[in-house]
């Protein structure tokens, strides 16, 4: 017994190091698997609060650009409105399947291999996990963690991110991933080799998951090659969004998610 205690006393530094190091490693491993990186994240009131107060100052520097983007989007929406032959249904009886919330990005990252954004809306604003986040130009990511006042968004620039996407011309669909090389370019994999591809074609979200509605812009084809098994294309997609410069975002909530999930659960 004496010897065991002595052993611990002699090696207390090493044992403490081993303990803390293994905690760090296990946190790292968790952060590399989807939906398990829960413990250490910046969507809490301390770090969220710090980021928000800094962002409150920072946002003034981008006001001009933000205004121009808003004007552009307004213009596009107006054009759609005036060119619509049917009068739009704006009464409250006919509310669509999707709810949209505005939010502000208070922290953005794109240089690491697993990037996350923090937005200034959380559970208090009825946000939950697995909601899609977009800007007026294209998709940004999926909410993977919420606190009272903040949410963490898994960017599409994250090696764990998987988003369903398809070609605009045809209905061939695949999975959007990222190979960490360039924050402007993501990869669309598992497109069957029968799909007709051209450089410059548009890629949209597929609508085969409950997260994003069908037809949200993603990017254009930059290049493509067929994989080793010669059955599927891997496509480089140039994003419409500049992921390094994101100010305001919209969060999309699908009201039918639970119904669809319940239907899918019957199968299992």
């Amino acid at each position: 017994m004496q010897q065991i205690i002595n052993f611990f006393l002699r090696n207390k530094n090493f044992l403490l190091f081993l303990l803390l190091f293994s905690i760090a490693i296990s946190l790292t491993i968790q952060s590399h698997s989807y939906h398990r990186s829960k413990f250490i994240n910046s969507a809490n009131f301390l770090t969220g609060g710090v980021y928000e107060s800094v962002n409150n100052i920072e946002q003034y520097f981008n006001l001009k650009e933000e205004n121009e983007q808003l004007l552009e989007e307004n213009n596009r929406l107006k054009a759609m409105l005036y060119n619509n032959i049917e009068p739009l249904n704006i009464d409250s009886m006919h509310q669509g399947q999707y709810e949209v919330f505005p939010a502000k990005v208070i922290k953005n990252a794109y240089a690491s291999t697993n990037n996350y954004l923090i937005i200034n809306k959380g559970q208090r604003d009825s946000l939950t996990e697995d909601l899609g986040v977009i800007t007026s130009k294209g998709i940004v990511g999926i909410i993977d963690n919420t606190s009272k006042g903040y949410s963490r968004v898994m960017s599409i620039l994250n090696t764990n991110s998987r988003v369903n996407a398809q070609l605009k011309k045809t209905d061939h669909f695949g999975t959007l991933t990222w190979n960490t090389n360039d924050p402007q370019v993501v990869q669309l994999i598992d497109i069957p080799k029968q799909a007709p591809l051209n450089v410059g074609d548009t890629i949209l979200t597929g609508g085969r998951s409950t997260i994003f509605p069908k037809g949200i812009m993603i990017g254009t084809i930059l290049g493509f090659q067929i994989d080793e098994t010669e059955n599927y294309f891997t496509i480089d997609v140039k994003l419409f969004n500049d992921m390094t410069n994101i100010g305001h975002v919209h969060i999309i909530k699908n009201k039918n998610t639970q119904e669809i999930k319940a239907l899918e659960a019957i199968d299992e």
Binding site: F17, S31, S37, S42
Partner: peptide
Amino acid sequence: FIFLSFLLGISVDLFLDSGGVHAGASVF
């Protein structure tokens, strides 16, 4: 010292959403 280094790393991790990456390297 080792404990403080861990704390330092984990605080940076908290801000950067990087799991336990900085904590591990700092403790080491």
